[in-house]
């Protein structure tokens, strides 16, 4: 049971990284993966909408904010391993690569290589971008209150 939770967490993690990365970055790294196994579509890339929900007051009951475009795709590797992808936007190519990568990451023979050549650089780029945005925001942090306090 615990192992299953761990596996699920790991899969959630890489699926999220694949979905959140720029398509151009995935394409660029994909070129470095050679001799990928044959695969077939279980579900061809399909573009649709997901209703994005918010919460009333940020923490209350849900409400429908508006939709977003998403592309989903499912593939099966030659050895039967199935990969799924749900990726924001309308790129069939991005969803297809994400689904294949999801299958490869579940495959013991491929996991290390795809993890190293694809997932690790994608993840580090996401972290770098996030860090840069955060440091830029932090430079605009206001210190209104470095003077004498004590009125409270």
């Amino acid at each position: 049971m615990q192992q299953q939770t761990k596996d699920t967490d790991a899969r959630r993690q890489w699926m999220g990284v694949l979905a959140k990365s720029d398509e151009s970055h995935v394409v660029q790294l994909w070129a470095g993966l050679s001799d990928l196994p044959a695969w077939e579509y279980l579900r061809r890339p399909e573009v649709g909408l997901v209703m994005v929900r918010g919460r009333m007051g940020g923490d209350g009951g849900p409400f429908n904010l508006g939709e977003m475009t998403v592309t989903r795709c499912s593939v099966r590797l030659q050895n039967g391993v199935v990969g799924h992808a749900w990726v924001a936007g309308r790129s069939a190519r991005h969803a297809e690569m994400a689904a294949i990568a999801d299958a490869l990451m579940q495959d013991g023979d491929w996991r290390a290589r795809v993890g190293e050549k694809l997932l690790a650089p994608l993840q580090s780029k996401l972290a770098d971008d996030r860090g840069r945005a955060e440091r830029k925001a932090a430079a605009t942090r206001v210190d209104f209150f470095t003077m004498v306090r004590g009125e409270d």
Partner: peptide, 20 residues
């Protein structure tokens, strides 16, 4: 013209990566 695949979990604005 697009099919609706479903609905998201409510977004957690408390966990936002804040820019402002």
């Amino acid at each position: 013209t697009l099919p609706r695949f479903g609905a998201s979990q409510p977004v957690d604005t408390g966990a936002m990566a804040i820019r402002r």
